[in-house]
Design a protein around this nucleic acid. Structure first.
Lengths: 123, 123
DNA sequence: CTAAAGCATGAACAATTGCTCATATGTTCA
DNA sequence: TGAACATATGAGCAATTGTTCATGCTTTAG
């Protein structure tokens, strides 16, 4: 197959072999996108602190607001996001709503990232 | 201890015992903040795809741009972020710069999140 | 029933983000 | 030395994000 280099292409491939291998091994687009969406939820300090707290114990919105020194509204908005992302589940008892982590994996992923950060902060 | 409820406080504590326990067990603010910063870097689909690719094999900017169907500039900007976050390291050979994952932990954290997402997509 | 407590939610606004475009830097080759 | 290539970077812009403020909903107490 005699192929001319495509001149109209602005970006040229340097290593065709590398590209072929990586293309073959790359995971599907969809799960990668989902993973980044999951990380996006973790990537806010307020939500990260909420997750850390709920990883210790189930809590209501009000107590979370006091713990983190933020308004009830701000906490509630973030909890909504966390619930949509299936990171948190809620349980209503009277007029109090208790939130808890929905999945044990979440705590594990957080713990792993925590270890990584701790190592970085020493070295 | 007879304590009056603090009336001037806008947000009242409902469960003092829970609050005390969680406060005692909560990790320090700084590492939690660092963890959320790390996740923030992961929380963009372009960067997530770059990390996935580099988890397979070292690649140059040009090939990454072709692989992901994006401009060289966009990829370069993101690689800069990844490098500042110490997620990626670079090696210059001639006029080509090769990027690779800087830490094995990164791939592990990603793999863990990937598993979680896959389970979610089935159930 | 009414008032208050606990929580949810929509609108609005400032701040951040990711990309594009233009251009600069550094390297190789003729 | 000059042209071409690979990459880096600053400015600018549209889109997204996190919080506040005001208000609505639901449940309990009186």
């Amino acid at each position: 197959m005699n192929r001319e280099p495509i001149e109209t292409c602005e970006v040229s491939v340097i290593h065709e072999d590398v590209l072929a291998r990586v293309k073959a091994k790359m995971p599907d687009e969809e799960p990668v996108y989902e993973v980044s969406e999951l990380f996006k939820v973790f990537g806010d300090s307020t939500r990260a602190r909420i997750i850390c707290a709920l990883n210790i114990e189930e809590m209501c919105v009000c107590d979370l607001a006091v713990l983190l020194g933020m308004t009830q509204s701000a906490i509630s908005h973030q909890l909504r996001l966390l619930k949509v992302a299936r990171i948190v589940r809620s349980r209503k008892q009277g007029r109090v709503v208790y939130y808890a982590l929905d999945d044990a994996h979440i705590g594990q992923i957080f713990a792993m990232a925590f270890d990584h950060v701790m190592e970085e902060m020493e070295g």
